[in-house]
Simulated assay, not measured.
Amino acid sequence: MTVADAKKIAEQKMQKSIENLKADLAKVRTGRAHTGLLDHVMVDYYGSPTALSQVANLTLIDARTIGVQPYEKKMGAVIEKAIREADLGLNPSTQGEMIRVPTPPLNEERRKEMVKLVKSEAEDAKIAVRNIRRDANESLKKLLKDKACSEDEERRAQDEVQKLTDKFVVEIDKIVADKEKEVLTV
């Protein structure tokens, strides 16, 4: 491993942390309906847990309603039960073969809870980025100890890793501020 490898690995891992944060924040409910709310809902499909998107077609009927069209007619009741038990605060109703999932408007208290959840996710992402920085610095110190780089190279690399960390923390703050604004918009 070289100094450049250590920096490159750290940057890739930090980028992955940002992607994970975005994926986690996509699940946080805002005032509008979106099919991403049901991404992690698992349905009992012939004895094995299966993602809802694998057993049904998800569409937006309007700004506040998600439509779920099961691929098999007999799956309707199972899907409705899975959505209800997913603890999302959603109450699906079956109309013919279509399951309608209205998303209730968020009240002020619920919006504040969502903002707390968003900030918690952001803090987890920042901790992950800092842990990556720590690991990168440890590998740089190991390179120095093994005499694979000079003290100056190691110091410069640590400074660059710190700059990377700062850049990703600022990006996390920006993502969270945008999501917070989205959640608080009535």
Rank of each mutant, 00 (worst) to 15 (best):
residue 17 S to C: 11
residue 12 Q to Y: 08
residue 58 L to Q: 09
residue 87 D to R: 14
residue 99 I to Y: 02
residue 157 A to Q: 07
residue 19 E to I: 09
residue 175 I to H: 05
residue 132 I to Y: 02
residue 41 V to H: 03
residue 186 V to M: 00
residue 8 K to V: 10
residue 38 L to P: 06
residue 92 P to T: 04
residue 112 K to A: 10
residue 27 K to P: 00
residue 153 E to Y: 03
residue 53 S to F: 14
residue 62 D to Q: 06
residue 135 D to E: 13
residue 126 K to D: 09
residue 153 E to L: 10
residue 13 K to Q: 15
residue 54 Q to K: 15
residue 60 L to R: 04
residue 174 K to G: 07
residue 55 V to F: 05
residue 52 L to P: 11
residue 88 L to Q: 07
residue 31 G to Y: 07
residue 113 E to L: 06
residue 147 K to Q: 14
residue 125 A to F: 03
residue 97 E to G: 08
residue 119 K to E: 12
residue 29 R to Q: 13
residue 170 V to N: 11
residue 40 H to A: 13
residue 174 K to A: 13
residue 95 Q to D: 12
residue 23 A to V: 11
residue 89 G to P: 01
residue 8 K to S: 15
residue 131 N to S: 12
residue 110 R to Q: 10
residue 85 E to P: 04
residue 95 Q to G: 02
residue 160 E to D: 14
residue 92 P to L: 06
residue 168 F to T: 06
residue 18 I to Q: 09
residue 110 R to G: 05
residue 39 D to P: 04
residue 79 I to K: 03
residue 83 I to F: 05
residue 112 K to S: 11
residue 139 S to R: 14
residue 20 N to F: 13
residue 47 G to N: 09
residue 15 Q to Y: 00
residue 1 M to R: 08
residue 70 P to K: 04
residue 40 H to E: 15
residue 149 C to D: 07
residue 137 N to I: 07
residue 110 R to H: 12
residue 23 A to Q: 10
residue 28 V to E: 05
residue 87 D to Y: 00
residue 48 S to I: 13
residue 178 D to I: 06
residue 87 D to Q: 14
residue 173 D to Y: 01
residue 27 K to T: 10
residue 94 T to D: 02
residue 10 A to V: 00
residue 71 Y to G: 13
residue 121 E to N: 14
residue 126 K to P: 03
residue 81 K to N: 09
residue 160 E to L: 11
residue 176 V to N: 05
residue 85 E to N: 12
residue 154 E to W: 07
residue 125 A to N: 09
residue 74 K to M: 10
residue 140 L to Q: 06
residue 21 L to Y: 03
residue 157 A to W: 05
residue 67 G to A: 08
residue 53 S to P: 04
residue 132 I to V: 14
residue 87 D to V: 01
residue 134 R to H: 11
residue 99 I to E: 07
residue 24 D to Q: 12
residue 161 V to M: 03
residue 26 A to W: 01
residue 56 A to S: 02
residue 7 K to A: 06
residue 133 R to C: 01
residue 21 L to P: 09
residue 174 K to M: 09
residue 117 L to Q: 12
residue 149 C to K: 10
residue 100 R to L: 12
residue 186 V to L: 08
residue 24 D to C: 01
residue 141 K to L: 10
residue 45 Y to E: 11
residue 20 N to P: 01
residue 52 L to H: 07
residue 137 N to Y: 01
residue 101 V to A: 07
residue 87 D to N: 15
residue 150 S to P: 06
residue 36 G to D: 05
residue 13 K to Y: 05
residue 79 I to M: 04
residue 175 I to N: 02
residue 56 A to L: 12
residue 72 E to S: 10
residue 32 R to D: 06
residue 18 I to F: 00
residue 180 E to K: 02
residue 124 D to G: 15
residue 173 D to N: 11
residue 153 E to P: 10
residue 47 G to R: 00
residue 79 I to L: 07
residue 171 E to N: 12
residue 136 A to W: 01
residue 117 L to P: 00
residue 43 V to K: 03
residue 90 L to M: 10
residue 44 D to Q: 13
residue 55 V to R: 05
residue 171 E to R: 15
residue 143 L to M: 12
residue 14 M to D: 04
residue 119 K to D: 11
residue 97 E to L: 14
residue 92 P to M: 10
residue 29 R to K: 08
residue 161 V to I: 15
residue 9 I to N: 14
residue 178 D to P: 02
residue 160 E to Y: 05
residue 50 T to L: 02
